[in-house]
Design a protein around this nucleic acid. Structure first.
Ligand SMILES: [Mn+2]
Ligand SMILES: [Mn+2]
Ligand SMILES: [Zn+2]
Ligand SMILES: [Zn+2]
Lengths: 167, 167
DNA sequence: AAATTATTTGCAAGTAATTCGCATTTAGGA
DNA sequence: TCCTAAATGCGAATTACTTGCAAATAATTT
């Protein structure tokens, strides 16, 4: 009996289908990245993925894979306040993380609660002594962007980036 | 009649007192950074702060000021998924942000709600067409760190950084 | 008010993370 | 099997941020 979504069909074949379904070529590199992410119990950094991949793991390819799969919604970027981005497979259940500001340790929070629930979150946690902060951001599309719908997807790099106040 | 906390005493004098209260020297640079953050309606990046500061605004000083004030809890770091950190004065009310994934626009959410409340958040929002994601992270101290309490505060840089799995 | 000193600053150089240009390879349809 | 758009790999570039160190200065102390 398969447990939950973490046990989903994270087989090479499944990934191959997912990629094709999104109109992407099912390359060894991409399948390897997805497999690494699927195996890891925590969000992974580019470096971690590269180390996990046996040989041929070019950084440019890994980063490009992250970007592509993130755009397609196959993986999710997680901010852990380390000095680099982390990614995890965008599995079914929405969940959050407990991040130690001192050592960086990360632990999943199985569901989405907040503030008043912090005591409860802490009680359920396995490795945390206390919670001192939490951050919540909503991401979506603003009115003006929705209006001129499709002015060019905001690539994470520069370009005619964020045409906005305060950088 | 002063409105809410955003109108708090964000005067140079008030900042001077705050700094001293935290055992820091009330330098022109620090007061200028705080004043810039106080004036801005949105979290600011280092670049934005430097541009806002009339003359003498060295990047090293701005970054060092961010780090120091963040450690003291005077300002708060905000992740907007742009390619750099943003900061805002850690005013009274805890609040979150609406971030446009396309153009980067940012808007405050006055209170802390979640998920089921997204429709309501969207209704209250002034500039958003839709919310497609939200991210919540809890920050605190993990058990092992709490145990050996004070092994050296995790500086944002490297060093004997995160002694953990997956980078 | 001048002397004292631990902090803080400014500048220049250094790093870490991520991106880009372009020649070469390859997945997958014809 | 051929063809071609898409993807890779390499190196160089960029960006965000940090650091070393000498000079400047805020807040004592006298
Ligand atoms: Mn997770
Ligand atoms: Mn805000
Ligand atoms: Zn927008
Ligand atoms: Zn810890």
């Amino acid at each position: 009996m398969p447990s939950s979504a973490r046990t989903a069909d994270h087989t090479a074949e499944a990934f191959r289908r997912t990629l094709r379904a999104h109109g992407l070529k099912a390359t060894p590199a991409r399948i390897a990245v997805l497999t690494a992410l699927a195996r890891a119990p925590r969000p992974m950094s580019a470096q971690a993925v590269m180390d996990a991949l046996p040989r041929n793991a070019d950084q440019a390819t890994v980063y490009r894979t992250f970007r592509t799969l993130k755009e397609k919604g196959v993986i999710r970027q997680i901010d852990l306040r380390h000095n680099h981005a982390h990614y995890e497979i965008a599995g079914a259940e929405e969940h959050h993380h407990l991040v130690c500001l001192q050592c960086g340790r990360v632990e999943d929070v199985d569901r989405c609660w907040i503030e008043d629930m912090q005591p409860a979150v802490l009680r359920r946690a396995k490795h945390f002594a206390r919670i001192t902060q939490h951050a919540l951001e909503f991401y979506g599309i603003c009115r003006s962007c929705a209006a001129r719908e499709r002015p060019s997807p905001r690539s994470t790099a520069k370009g005619s980036d964020i045409p906005l106040p305060s950088y």
